[in-house]
Design a binder for these strands. Sequence first.
DNA 1: TTAAACTCTTGACATTTATCAAGAGTCAGA
DNA 2: TCTGACTCTTGATAAATGTCAAGAGTTTAA
Lengths: 189, 189
Amino acid sequence: MIEILQQHITNRLGKLPDNIDLVLPHFEAVITKRGDLLLQPGEVCKYVYFIVEGCLQVFVTDKNGNESTREFYIEEQWATDIFGFQNQIPSAEYIRCTEPCKLLRIHYESFQKLATVVPQFSAIYKQILEVSYNNTVYRVNTLTSMDALERIKWMMENKPKIMARLSSKLIASYLGISAETLTRLKSKI
Amino acid sequence: MIEILQQHITNRLGKLPDNIDLVLPHFEAVITKRGDLLLQPGEVCKYVYFIVEGCLQVFVTDKNGNESTREFYIEEQWATDIFGFQNQIPSAEYIRCTEPCKLLRIHYESFQKLATVVPQFSAIYKQILEVSYNNTVYRVNTLTSMDALERIKWMMENKPKIMARLSSKLIASYLGISAETLTRLKSKI
DNA sequence: TTAAACTCTTGACATTTATCAAGAGTCAGA
DNA sequence: TCTGACTCTTGATAAATGTCAAGAGTTTAA
C-alpha cells in the first residue's frame, strides 16, 4: 500500500524527494468494511486519510436525520475535516466508508511535525488546500445558482466516476435533493 | 490607508515583522464607487484585494440573470477569486463593491514573489486559505442541510454585521432564496 | 432639492421539490 | 446459496419556495 502513496508524492512533486524516508514511516495502514465510520460529530479528528482503494463520504445530518454529503473522496485523494483537525476541536461532520477501503492515515502530531520539517510536505498540503478550497467554492456556486436538473447534468459531466460508482441515495445527498427527485429528473435527460 | 494593513499584519503575526518594508510597497490604493466591478466572468483576476473600508460581494449569475452571492467581505478581510488568480485563468465570478470602498490591492506577480521570498507572507496566506476553506465548507453544509428559515436564523446569529449592513436583496442572494421569501420568513421569527 | 431609481412588503398564484407508500428487483454477507 | 436488507421506480399528495405585480417608503446622485 505504501508504494501507492510514494508514487502519488512522486507524481505531485515531479520526482521522488530525497527525504521521502522521513515521511512514509508516519503513515499507518487501515483496512475498513463498508459502512465503517472514521469520524463522528463531536469527536476530534486525529487523522488525515489517504485513500489507496475505496471511497469515503464526508457528510452532516439535518434535524430530521437526513444526510447531506459535502464531498466524496476516492483513490489517491486525501480526506479529513480540516478545520477540526487543524484546531483539534470537535468535528461537525461524519466520515464514512461507502465500501471496503484500504487507507493510509497520518496522525495530527506527525502531520504538524512534517509540515514544519519537510518543505515538500508543506508544499503538497498547500496544493491540496487550494484545490479543495476551489472545489468547495464551485460547489457553493452550483448549489445556489443551479436547479436540481442543472446540478444533475453538471455532476454527470464533471463527476462521472462518482456518479457511476455510488448509489442514487448517496448521489442525491450530494446534490442536495431527495433520491426520488433524482430518479424522476434523470429520466428527463 | 497602508497603516491599516500594517496593523492587520502585526495583529496576525503577533508583532511587526522586520521585513515589512519588503511587503507594503507592493500594495496600491484603490478608491471605488458603489456598484463598481473589480472582476467579471471571463476576465483574469490579477489582484488580491485588502479591504480598508467598504464591502465586496463575490457572486455568479444563473441562466436567468439572478445573482448568487458566494461571499461578502468587509473591513480587514481579503477578497479574490483564488483559483483564477493562482492559475491566471479566466474567472467564473464577479467581484463588486456594494458601497464606496477604500481598498489596497496587490498584483499577481508581486504576490507570487512575496510568497516565495517572505515566509511570514506565505504563512498569513496559508492561514487565510484555511479559514476561507473552512467557511466555505460550512456554507456547503448549511446550504444542503438547512431550510430557508434555518439559514436565516443561522445568518442572524453568525453574520449579524453583514445582515444589518446590506440590503435584503443581497442577503437573499447569499442565502440562496428570493428577496420575497426572506421578507416573509423574517416576520415568522 | 428633487426626480429617478431602488427597497421593502404583501397578495395571488405557479412551480419545484419533498414526503409517504408500495412493489419489483438486486445485493451483501452469514 | 439463501435471506434479509437495501435500491430503484412510480404514484399521489403536501409543503416550501419562486414569480409577477403593485403601492408606499427611502435613498442616491445630479
